[in-house]
């Protein structure tokens, strides 16, 4: 089985925050994927120069229509182009699905993992959102708690949808942690998510809890170490590191 490159066409762009956009791509022949998996995106310039980056799939499998959510990094080669430069109708190439470890789906683990803890830093929420959405679409009641660290209230990706799902979906909790600027009336002053605080926001470690931690590398390292200190077993924690310092 070889992962092949698929031609993809941008069919819709949704602004999520001032620096983040969701790209909806039509990919004929897409073989399907699990929540948590990612694709490799390849961009080729007119002179043949090409480069690739990985992007998590933001939605569960919906056939030939895929969603990725990209954060523009100021000096980045690819992400600012995807967020601002790509126009509806433009082609790119995709390869995948990639990654069989950082996955959760409401079907495959029934009875094995009873509670799912999601810990996101910034754009690390993307593959976790695919899990939240998969749970919603399946009508699953598996307890799921998302601890989501963002800089400011304006940086919350999927803000309205998370708000709505947290109200509508039984057993889904969304806990926002603001690092630079807290919303008015928030009881918590803005500041980094410390290991101690994470220990209070996470469920106490238990055999039926599995944690998925995703975001910039430094965030993932700190959060995963925090969970270990709180008593989580290594084997109960799955991580996806997006890179960066």
């Amino acid at each position: 089985m070889r992962l092949s490159w698929y031609p993809a066409t941008l069919v819709e762009r949704r602004a999520e925050t001032p620096t983040v956009a969701t790209l909806v791509l039509r990919v004929p022949g897409w073989p399907g994927h699990l929540p948590g998996q990612h694709v490799d995106v390849r961009l080729t310039a007119e002179d043949g120069y090409s480069t690739q980056r990985s992007y998590s799939l933001a939605a569960p499998d919906h056939g030939a229509v895929l969603e990725i959510t990209v954060q523009a990094l100021g000096d980045g080669e690819v992400s600012p182009f995807l967020v601002e430069g790509l126009v509806v109708g433009d082609p790119v190439e995709l390869r995948g699905p990639v990654g069989g470890w950082f996955v959760w789906s409401p079907v495959s683990v029934a009875g094995l993992v009873d509670r799912v803890l999601l810990v996101a830093g910034g754009s690390g929420v993307v593959p976790l959102m695919a899990m939240v959405r998969a749970r919603h679409e399946a009508g699953s009641t598996v307890p799921m708690r998302l601890v989501y660290s963002v800089r400011t209230p304006a940086d919350v990706i999927y803000a309205d949808e998370l708000d709505r799902l947290a109200k509508e979906d039984d057993g889904l909790e969304v806990l926002l942690v603001h690092t630079r600027e807290a919303p008015p009336g928030s009881g918590r002053p803005a500041g980094r998510l410390s290991a101690d605080e994470l220990a209070t926001l996470a469920w106490p470690p238990a055999d039926d809890v599995r944690a998925y931690v995703c975001g910039p590398t430094a965030f993932v390292d700190a959060a995963a170490a925090g969970l270990v200190r709180a008593g989580y077993h290594d084997a109960a924690i799955r991580t996806e590191r997006f890179g960066g310092e």
Binding site: P7, L43, S50, G85, D90, G243, E245
Partner: peptide, 29 residues
């Protein structure tokens, strides 16, 4: 591959020394 209009990319001098599909970083991810 299929050309994406408007994409130019950032070519580095060192690109020639790198295996296909790789880009240079000075961090250690």
């Amino acid at each position: 591959g299929i050309v994406t209009p408007g994409f130019r990319g950032r070519r580095s001098e060192e690109a020639a020394e790198l295996p296909p599909g790789q880009y240079l970083t000075s961090d250690f991810p």
